[in-house]
Amino acid sequence: MTADDRTGRGEELVHLAGVDFGYDHHAVLRGVDLSVCERDFIGVVGPSGSGKTTLLRLLLGTNKPQRGTITRTPGIAVGYVPQLETVNWNFPVTVAECVLMARKQRGLPWPSRTDKADIAAVLDRLGIGHLAHRHIRELSGGQQQRMFIARALLRRPRLLLMDEPTSGVDVASRHDMLHLLTDLHSEGVAILITTHDLNGVASHLPRLVAVHGRIVAEGTPREVITPPVLEETFGAPMQVLEHLGMPVVLDLEGNLTPSGSS
C-alpha cells in the first residue's frame, strides 16, 4: 500500500472499496468506501442498528464483504476491544489470564518470565497492575475496558479497533479513557472506535465517520456534526451549537443529546 502523506494521515492500513454487507438478505451496509491510515483516530457514530459494529467487524476481518473489496497492509497486527455487553463475565479467568490469551503459546502453557514481565508492564501502563489476579467480574466498567485494551496492546497492534469503549462507564472513566486513547494514538497506534456519545466522545476526536446503512459523512467533527448530517444519520432533527471551539449537540427541546449507550 502506498503512503498518503498528502492528507497527513500516513500509510493506508485498511481500505474498503464499494463494500456491501448484510445478514439474511437484509442489507446492513451498502457501498462503503473507507480508508483507515496509520495516523488516524476515528470515531464511527450512528444510532443502534446503523451498521457501526458491522463496519468494525469488516475492518477486523470477521465479516467478509458480500460485494466490494477490503485491502489490508500485509502482516498488520490489529487489536480488538469488544463491547463489554458481549463478554461472558462469569467465565473463570483472572485479569492476567485474560491478557495472556493474546500471547501465542510456544511450548509450555503457563506464562514465561517474558510473558509475565510484558503482562505486568502493560497492566501497569494502564493503571490496573494491582488487579492482575482479580476475577474479571470484580473490575469496574472502566477497568474492564482497560483489561481488554491491555490484551490488545500485548500484540503490539498498529491498529486498535474498539466497540463502544465508553459505553457503560461513568464520566470520570470516560475522560480517563479518552486521555488513554489519545496517549496511545500519539505513540503511533491508529485507533478507530464506535460511539453513540456525540458530545462526550465524538466531538473530541480528530476524525468522524457518520454511518446509517452507508457512510453519510466523513471528516472533522465540524464537518460531520452538523444538523443536516445528524438528521440523516439519526433520523431526528438536532441543533448544533459551538462551545470552546467544539460542536455541542442539542435535541429540539434544547437538551444535550444523551451520552453513552442508547
Binding site: 490489529v78 490469551m101 500484540r155
Partner: peptide, 13 residues
C-alpha cells in the same frame, strides 16, 4: 482458552 472465552477475537488474534 481463547477460543472458548472469545472465539471472534481469538480468530482475528
Amino acid at each position: 482458552l481463547f477460543a472458548t472465552f472469545d472465539p471472534d477475537v481469538a480468530d482475528v488474534s
